[in-house]
Design a protein around this nucleic acid. Structure first.
Lengths: 266, 266
DNA sequence: GAGCAAAATTGACGATCATCAACGACGGTC
DNA sequence: GACCGTCGTTGATGATCGTCAATTTTGCTC
């Protein structure tokens, strides 16, 4: 019924995940029965200052799991079975249709809660979530999250703010889709990815290990993968970015940003 | 600083607003000091089952106002000063940049609450709201809505569900932007507008009075207004829709829907 | 109704894109 | 190592789009 993109089965060579430059990802010292540190510190998580009883409830109702590249966390159309909290790695939120179309709508990072929308509306998942590379994700089952929400109004408020943040992100995306050229949309996307996945090189340039395929890149820009290939080619000849597989090197992020800054001063 | 689109100054010839076919809009018998019926009935509003004290608080902190076509309800960049609830008419939610670009992101109808995002995040408005045609809107000031939220957790939950609904709407939009052609995007938009603004004619065809200009239509589709003009021309020659100013007549809505149904069976 | 500004249409042209097809590269399986 | 499916790239071609410009239409003010 639903297509699994890039799903190549579990790779059990985990127990670690890459800490990317600029990312907040941290190794999580797994100790069953104790609260996972990553899920609480840094106020990057929605669960960081629960009262002791709620915290205990969370600890008992939470299951930590590692996902291999391409593994599906939850699939579009499935009934909701609780929420997930990204602890490490990168997760892609994807929407599919019955014609084989696939659009990567957003990326989720450590601290982000996913699957909360279908939980709160008590409905099936409207999107799929899939690990982009080795990923660690906590699952909080349906009854636990329900109990937590009932006893902690602040948690609901945090979901509300998360939802609003995602909505404003979606509005920005819609605005760019309507006003920018495909090239500028790709440049913008690269700049966002540099912020999340970029590492600084000794010569001042910055490099990214893209978490997504060219096809997904194309879906995020709103065009076909062949077109993305050609735009990448133009970026190469213009010398503003160098692509080698999923590795991208940007000689001057400022020069790349200037390309869209002249159009979007705000 | 911010451009007012279509703003031609207030038209004081109000006191009524058009009841469009298929729309839920109803005339609101204005009586100061009493609860506005439209804001409570039909569970289309976020305020429909407050307790008596909250209801009294709402009544005293609410101000009803009529807006003329093009009038701005709140402007992008302004500080939030409470929330608005659409009572009658149609409101456009718009995003602008400093280059004169304008994108109509969504339409708000009677029962919809707008401006709640910047209230809940205590920030400036990220979008503008503008009356598309004669409109009636209630304004609930900052302190009133704060008091209501503090005493009615259910109200916050309703905002949460509203936000989630808008987010899923935005995701659908993003998906269509990435997968549909401009023609199909316009067809889809027409079908949505038929559902909201359409009226059935005696011969089985349906007509719409478009609430938006061609430029706004173009921004919603993600293209230029000249292109929209040409696509409309093609729809005319294909006989699937007839345009005369802002009035559109669709001989067979089913035939129009079939154009995208064959591509989006889901 | 005259006048005006914005909206809408139409034409022409170059740029960009979608599609189909062919091919090499890569990763995983057996 | 052979096989296979997917991904990525490149080419060719027709369709579509963006831009500039000219013109008409519309809606509003006076």
């Amino acid at each position: 019924m639903f297509i699994q993109f890039g799903a190549t089965g579990p790779k059990e060579r985990l127990g670690w995940y890459q800490v990317e430059g600029g990312s907040m990802a941290q190794a999580c010292t797994k100790q069953e029965g104790q609260a996972c540190v990553v899920c609480h510190v840094g106020r990057r998580s929605d669960w960081h200052d629960l009262d002791p009883t709620a915290s205990a409830l969370l600890t008992s109702g939470r299951r930590r799991r590692e996902y291999g590249s391409g593994e599906v966390v939850f699939a579009q159309g499935e009934r909701n079975d609780g929420v997930h909290c990204v602890s490490g790695g990168t997760v892609g939120i994807r929407k599919l249709d019955g014609n084989g179309n696939s659009v990567l709508l957003e990326l989720a990072y450590p601290g982000d809660t996913i699957g909360y929308r279908s939980f709160l509306t008590d409905s099936e998942h409207k999107t799929s979530a899939e690990a982009l590379g080795p990923t660690v994700i906590c699952h909080i089952d349906h009854s636990t999250i329900a109990a937590l929400l009932a006893g902690n109004p602040a948690l609901g408020l945090r979901f509300l703010k998360r939802s609003i943040g995602e909505l404003e992100h979606a509005h920005d995306m819609m605005f760019r889709q309507a006003t920018l050229s495909n090239r500028h949309k790709l440049v913008h996307l690269l700049l966002v990815l540099v912020g999340r996945h970029g590492r600084r090189n000794s010569n001042g340039s910055q490099s990214i290990d893209l978490p997504v395929s060219r096809r997904d890149l194309a879906s995020m820009v709103g065009t076909r993968h062949e077109t993305i290939s050609r735009i990448i080619g133009r970026l190469e000849t213009d010398g503003v970015a160098h692509f080698s597989g999923r590795q991208v090197t940007i000689p001057s992020v400022e020069a790349l940003a200037a390309e869209i800054d002249c159009l979007i001063p705000a």
